[in-house]
Protein backbone atom coordinates (compact mmCIF):
# COMPACT_ATOMS: atom_id res chain seq x y z
CA UNK A 1 0.00 0.00 0.00
CA UNK A 2 2.85 2.35 0.89
CA UNK A 3 4.39 1.63 -2.45
CA UNK A 4 1.13 2.30 -4.27
CA UNK A 5 0.73 5.65 -2.51
CA UNK A 6 4.37 6.54 -3.18
CA UNK A 7 3.82 5.89 -6.89
CA UNK A 8 0.62 7.95 -6.76
CA UNK A 9 2.47 10.89 -5.19
CA UNK A 10 5.39 10.62 -7.65
CA UNK A 11 3.01 10.41 -10.59
CA UNK A 12 0.96 13.39 -9.41
CA UNK A 13 4.03 15.63 -9.08
CA UNK A 14 5.25 14.58 -12.53
CA UNK A 15 1.73 15.00 -13.88
CA UNK A 16 1.48 18.59 -12.69
CA UNK A 17 4.58 19.52 -14.69
CA UNK A 18 3.39 17.53 -17.71
CA UNK A 19 0.11 19.45 -17.49
CA UNK A 20 1.93 22.80 -17.55
CA UNK A 21 3.93 21.71 -20.59
CA UNK A 22 0.82 20.42 -22.29
CA UNK A 23 -1.42 23.46 -21.84
CA UNK A 24 1.25 25.80 -23.18
CA UNK A 25 1.53 23.75 -26.34
CA UNK A 26 -2.20 23.15 -26.78
CA UNK A 27 -2.98 26.84 -26.30
CA UNK A 28 -0.68 27.80 -29.14
CA UNK A 29 -2.03 25.07 -31.37
CA UNK A 30 -5.67 25.67 -30.50
CA UNK A 31 -5.69 29.38 -31.11
CA UNK A 32 -3.05 29.78 -33.79
CA UNK A 33 -2.96 26.31 -35.42
CA UNK A 34 0.81 26.43 -35.04
CA UNK A 35 2.56 23.14 -34.32
CA UNK A 36 5.20 24.51 -31.98
CA UNK A 37 8.24 22.27 -32.29
CA UNK A 38 10.25 24.75 -30.25
CA UNK A 39 8.09 24.24 -27.13
CA UNK A 40 10.67 22.00 -25.48
CA UNK A 41 13.38 24.55 -26.23
CA UNK A 42 11.47 27.20 -24.30
CA UNK A 43 11.36 24.71 -21.43
CA UNK A 44 15.16 24.34 -21.70
CA UNK A 45 15.46 28.13 -21.97
CA UNK A 46 13.63 28.55 -18.66
CA UNK A 47 15.91 26.01 -17.01
CA UNK A 48 19.03 27.83 -18.26
CA UNK A 49 17.64 31.15 -17.07
CA UNK A 50 17.31 29.57 -13.61
CA UNK A 51 20.85 28.21 -13.87
CA UNK A 52 22.33 31.54 -14.96
CA UNK A 53 20.51 33.54 -12.30
CA UNK A 54 20.67 31.15 -9.35
CA UNK A 55 23.93 29.25 -9.87
CA UNK A 56 26.02 31.93 -11.54
CA UNK A 57 24.59 35.23 -10.27
CA UNK A 58 23.57 33.86 -6.84
CA UNK A 59 20.11 35.36 -7.28
CA UNK A 60 17.13 34.21 -5.24
CA UNK A 61 15.44 31.16 -6.77
CA UNK A 62 11.93 32.61 -6.52
CA UNK A 63 12.97 35.83 -8.27
CA UNK A 64 14.59 33.66 -10.94
CA UNK A 65 11.29 31.81 -11.43
CA UNK A 66 9.43 35.06 -12.09
CA UNK A 67 12.18 36.28 -14.41
CA UNK A 68 12.19 32.97 -16.30
CA UNK A 69 8.44 33.31 -16.86
CA UNK A 70 8.86 36.92 -17.97
CA UNK A 71 11.77 36.22 -20.31
CA UNK A 72 9.92 33.20 -21.73
CA UNK A 73 6.94 35.47 -22.45
CA UNK A 74 9.16 38.01 -24.21
CA UNK A 75 11.04 35.38 -26.20
CA UNK A 76 7.80 33.67 -27.26
CA UNK A 77 6.22 36.97 -28.25
CA UNK A 78 9.37 37.88 -30.19
CA UNK A 79 9.34 34.58 -32.08
CA UNK A 80 5.70 35.13 -33.01
CA UNK A 81 6.19 38.77 -33.94
CA UNK A 82 9.41 38.40 -35.91
CA UNK A 83 8.97 35.01 -37.56
CA UNK A 84 5.34 33.93 -37.66
CA UNK A 85 3.45 37.16 -38.24
CA UNK A 86 5.50 37.84 -41.32
CA UNK A 87 4.49 34.60 -43.00
CA UNK A 88 0.81 35.18 -42.12
CA UNK A 89 0.22 31.58 -41.04
CA UNK A 90 -1.33 30.72 -44.37
CA UNK A 91 0.83 27.73 -45.05
CA UNK A 92 1.12 25.23 -42.23
CA UNK A 93 4.17 23.59 -43.83
CA UNK A 94 6.09 26.85 -43.76
CA UNK A 95 5.14 27.45 -40.15
CA UNK A 96 6.26 23.97 -39.19
CA UNK A 97 9.60 24.47 -40.93
CA UNK A 98 10.07 27.81 -39.20
CA UNK A 99 9.39 26.23 -35.80
CA UNK A 100 11.76 23.33 -36.51
CA UNK A 101 14.37 25.93 -37.47
CA UNK A 102 13.75 27.83 -34.24
CA UNK A 103 14.14 24.57 -32.30
CA UNK A 104 17.49 23.74 -33.95
CA UNK A 105 18.83 27.26 -33.53
CA UNK A 106 17.79 27.49 -29.87
CA UNK A 107 19.21 24.09 -28.97
CA UNK A 108 22.53 24.81 -30.64
CA UNK A 109 22.68 28.31 -29.16
CA UNK A 110 22.31 26.74 -25.71
CA UNK A 111 25.05 24.29 -26.54
CA UNK A 112 27.32 27.09 -27.73
CA UNK A 113 26.61 29.24 -24.69
CA UNK A 114 26.71 26.63 -21.94
CA UNK A 115 28.45 23.55 -23.36
CA UNK A 116 27.10 20.02 -23.40
CA UNK A 117 27.84 19.12 -19.79
CA UNK A 118 24.82 19.04 -17.47
CA UNK A 119 24.41 21.97 -15.06
CA UNK A 120 23.03 21.79 -11.55
CA UNK A 121 20.75 24.39 -9.96
CA UNK A 122 20.81 24.30 -6.14
CA UNK A 123 17.43 24.02 -4.43
CA UNK A 124 16.42 26.70 -1.89
CA UNK A 125 14.55 24.07 0.14
CA UNK A 126 15.88 21.59 2.71
CA UNK A 127 17.15 18.38 1.14
CA UNK A 128 15.54 16.11 3.72
CA UNK A 129 12.26 14.67 2.54
CA UNK A 130 8.91 15.18 4.25
CA UNK A 131 7.65 11.82 5.48
CA UNK A 132 3.94 11.24 6.00
CA UNK A 133 2.77 7.73 6.71
CA UNK A 134 5.75 6.15 5.01
CA UNK A 135 5.41 8.32 1.90
CA UNK A 136 8.45 10.40 1.02
CA UNK A 137 8.30 13.69 -0.81
CA UNK A 138 11.14 16.18 -1.10
CA UNK A 139 10.21 19.78 -0.26
CA UNK A 140 11.41 20.87 -3.71
CA UNK A 141 8.99 18.51 -5.43
CA UNK A 142 6.19 19.57 -3.11
CA UNK A 143 6.85 23.18 -4.10
CA UNK A 144 6.84 22.21 -7.78
CA UNK A 145 3.46 20.52 -7.29
CA UNK A 146 2.03 23.53 -5.45
CA UNK A 147 3.37 26.04 -7.96
CA UNK A 148 2.09 23.97 -10.88
CA UNK A 149 -1.41 23.76 -9.40
CA UNK A 150 -1.50 27.51 -8.73
CA UNK A 151 -0.34 28.20 -12.29
CA UNK A 152 -2.89 25.80 -13.74
CA UNK A 153 -5.71 27.48 -11.79
CA UNK A 154 -4.51 30.98 -12.62
CA UNK A 155 -4.29 30.04 -16.25
CA UNK A 156 -7.76 28.56 -16.19
CA UNK A 157 -9.15 31.75 -14.68
CA UNK A 158 -7.42 33.91 -17.29
CA UNK A 159 -8.88 31.86 -20.12
CA UNK A 160 -12.38 31.45 -18.67
CA UNK A 161 -12.98 34.65 -16.73
CA UNK A 162 -10.87 37.52 -18.11
CA UNK A 163 -11.52 39.73 -21.14
CA UNK A 164 -8.23 38.55 -22.60
CA UNK A 165 -9.37 34.97 -22.22
CA UNK A 166 -12.67 35.83 -23.86
CA UNK A 167 -10.84 37.38 -26.81
CA UNK A 168 -8.61 34.33 -27.03
CA UNK A 169 -11.53 31.95 -27.00
CA UNK A 170 -13.30 34.06 -29.59
CA UNK A 171 -10.26 33.93 -31.85
CA UNK A 172 -10.09 30.18 -31.29
CA UNK A 173 -13.74 29.75 -32.35
CA UNK A 174 -13.76 32.02 -35.36
CA UNK A 175 -10.96 34.34 -36.25
CA UNK A 176 -12.97 36.43 -38.71
CA UNK A 177 -15.92 36.86 -36.37
CA UNK A 178 -13.55 37.89 -33.59
CA UNK A 179 -12.02 40.49 -35.90
CA UNK A 180 -15.48 41.84 -36.76
CA UNK A 181 -16.38 42.39 -33.10
CA UNK A 182 -13.15 44.31 -32.56
CA UNK A 183 -10.67 41.78 -31.27
CA UNK A 184 -7.11 42.67 -32.22
CA UNK A 185 -6.28 39.24 -33.56
CA UNK A 186 -2.58 39.93 -34.25
CA UNK A 187 -2.13 41.01 -30.67
CA UNK A 188 -3.98 37.93 -29.43
CA UNK A 189 -1.61 35.77 -31.47
CA UNK A 190 1.49 37.41 -30.03
CA UNK A 191 0.11 37.19 -26.50
CA UNK A 192 -0.95 33.57 -26.95
CA UNK A 193 2.45 32.54 -28.17
CA UNK A 194 4.07 34.50 -25.38
CA UNK A 195 1.83 32.97 -22.71
CA UNK A 196 2.34 29.43 -23.98
CA UNK A 197 6.10 29.98 -24.11
CA UNK A 198 6.09 31.51 -20.67
CA UNK A 199 4.43 28.40 -19.26
CA UNK A 200 7.10 26.20 -20.84
CA UNK A 201 9.88 28.43 -19.50
CA UNK A 202 8.57 28.50 -15.95
CA UNK A 203 8.14 24.71 -16.03
CA UNK A 204 11.81 24.43 -17.01
CA UNK A 205 12.84 26.78 -14.21
CA UNK A 206 10.64 24.92 -11.69
CA UNK A 207 12.19 21.58 -12.61
CA UNK A 208 15.80 22.82 -12.87
CA UNK A 209 16.63 22.03 -9.21
CA UNK A 210 14.78 18.71 -9.41
CA UNK A 211 16.64 17.40 -12.47
CA UNK A 212 19.79 18.57 -14.27
CA UNK A 213 19.97 21.20 -17.01
CA UNK A 214 21.25 20.13 -20.44
CA UNK A 215 20.93 21.58 -23.97
CA UNK A 216 19.00 18.50 -25.16
CA UNK A 217 16.53 18.45 -22.25
CA UNK A 218 13.91 20.03 -24.51
CA UNK A 219 13.68 16.98 -26.77
CA UNK A 220 12.07 14.78 -24.16
CA UNK A 221 9.86 17.66 -22.95
CA UNK A 222 8.60 18.30 -26.50
CA UNK A 223 7.87 14.63 -27.04
CA UNK A 224 5.89 14.40 -23.81
CA UNK A 225 4.07 17.66 -24.47
CA UNK A 226 2.93 16.46 -27.89
CA UNK A 227 1.80 13.15 -26.41
CA UNK A 228 -0.20 14.95 -23.71
CA UNK A 229 -1.83 17.31 -26.18
CA UNK A 230 -2.85 14.45 -28.46
CA UNK A 231 -4.12 12.47 -25.47
CA UNK A 232 -6.19 15.38 -24.19
CA UNK A 233 -7.47 16.51 -27.57
CA UNK A 234 -5.72 19.09 -29.76
CA UNK A 235 -6.42 22.62 -28.63
CA UNK A 236 -8.35 21.54 -25.55
CA UNK A 237 -6.86 23.22 -22.50
CA UNK A 238 -8.74 21.24 -19.88
CA UNK A 239 -7.91 18.10 -21.85
CA UNK A 240 -4.20 18.93 -21.84
CA UNK A 241 -4.19 19.44 -18.07
CA UNK A 242 -5.96 16.15 -17.47
CA UNK A 243 -3.86 14.49 -20.19
CA UNK A 244 -0.70 15.55 -18.38
CA UNK A 245 -1.79 13.88 -15.15
CA UNK A 246 -3.06 10.85 -17.07
CA UNK A 247 0.20 10.30 -18.96
CA UNK A 248 2.34 10.70 -15.83
CA UNK A 249 0.22 8.25 -13.84
CA UNK A 250 0.14 5.74 -16.70
CA UNK A 251 3.94 5.94 -16.95
CA UNK A 252 4.46 5.70 -13.20
CA UNK A 253 2.13 2.76 -12.60
CA UNK A 254 3.12 1.05 -15.83
CA UNK A 255 6.76 1.22 -14.76
CA UNK A 256 5.92 0.10 -11.24
CA UNK A 257 3.66 -2.84 -11.97
CA UNK A 258 4.43 -3.89 -15.55
CA UNK A 259 7.98 -3.07 -16.58
CA UNK A 260 10.38 -0.17 -16.08
CA UNK A 261 12.08 -1.01 -19.38
CA UNK A 262 8.86 -0.16 -21.22
CA UNK A 263 7.92 2.88 -19.14
CA UNK A 264 7.73 5.24 -22.13
CA UNK A 265 6.36 2.55 -24.43
CA UNK A 266 3.40 1.94 -22.09
CA UNK A 267 2.53 5.65 -22.18
CA UNK A 268 2.66 5.77 -25.94
CA UNK A 269 0.77 2.50 -26.31
CA UNK A 270 -2.13 3.99 -24.35
CA UNK A 271 -2.03 7.04 -26.63
CA UNK A 272 -2.19 4.75 -29.65
CA UNK A 273 -5.25 3.02 -28.24
CA UNK A 274 -6.89 6.38 -27.51
CA UNK A 275 -6.18 7.55 -31.05
CA UNK A 276 -7.89 4.47 -32.45
CA UNK A 277 -10.87 4.55 -30.09
CA UNK A 278 -11.31 8.33 -29.72
CA UNK A 279 -9.39 10.18 -32.45
CA UNK A 280 -10.48 13.56 -31.08
CA UNK A 281 -8.66 12.87 -27.79
CA UNK A 282 -9.82 11.62 -24.40
CA UNK A 283 -11.37 14.78 -23.06
CA UNK A 284 -12.35 16.70 -26.18
CA UNK A 285 -15.94 17.75 -26.43
CA UNK A 286 -17.47 17.25 -29.86
CA UNK A 287 -15.88 19.87 -32.04
CA UNK A 288 -17.53 21.81 -34.78
CA UNK A 289 -15.93 20.86 -38.04
CA UNK A 290 -15.51 23.21 -41.00
Amino acid sequence: MDQFLQHLVNGTVLGATYALLGIGLTLIFGIMKVVNFAHGELYAFGAYVAYALVSLLQMDYFVALVLAAGLGLLLGAAIEFLLLRRCRLENIDEVMLIMIGVMIIMQNAELLAWGGVAKVVPTPFPQESIIVGGIYLSPTRLFVLGAAIVLLLAFYLVIERSRLGLAMRATFQDEDAARIVGVNVSRIYTLTFGLGSSLAAITGALLAPVFVVTPTMGDLASLKAFAIVILGGLGNIRGAALGGFALALIEEFGAAYISTAYRDAIGFLVILVVMIARPQGLFAAKERVG
Binding site: Q3, Q6, H7, N10, G11, L14, F211, V212, T216, M217, D219, L220, E251, E252, A255, A256, S259, T260, A261, R263, D264
Partner: peptide, 15 residues
Protein backbone atom coordinates in the same frame (compact mmCIF):
# COMPACT_ATOMS: atom_id res chain seq x y z
CA UNK B 1 15.70 -0.37 -16.36
CA UNK B 2 15.97 3.34 -17.17
CA UNK B 3 15.81 4.92 -20.64
CA UNK B 4 19.12 6.63 -21.58
CA UNK B 5 17.47 10.08 -21.64
CA UNK B 6 15.17 9.65 -18.61
CA UNK B 7 15.39 12.25 -15.87
CA UNK B 8 12.66 11.09 -13.52
CA UNK B 9 13.70 7.77 -11.96
CA UNK B 10 11.21 7.89 -9.12
CA UNK B 11 9.04 5.03 -10.45
CA UNK B 12 12.03 2.71 -10.64
CA UNK B 13 13.32 3.71 -7.21
CA UNK B 14 9.93 3.38 -5.53
CA UNK B 15 9.62 -0.09 -7.04
Amino acid sequence: IIAPDATDLSAQLAA
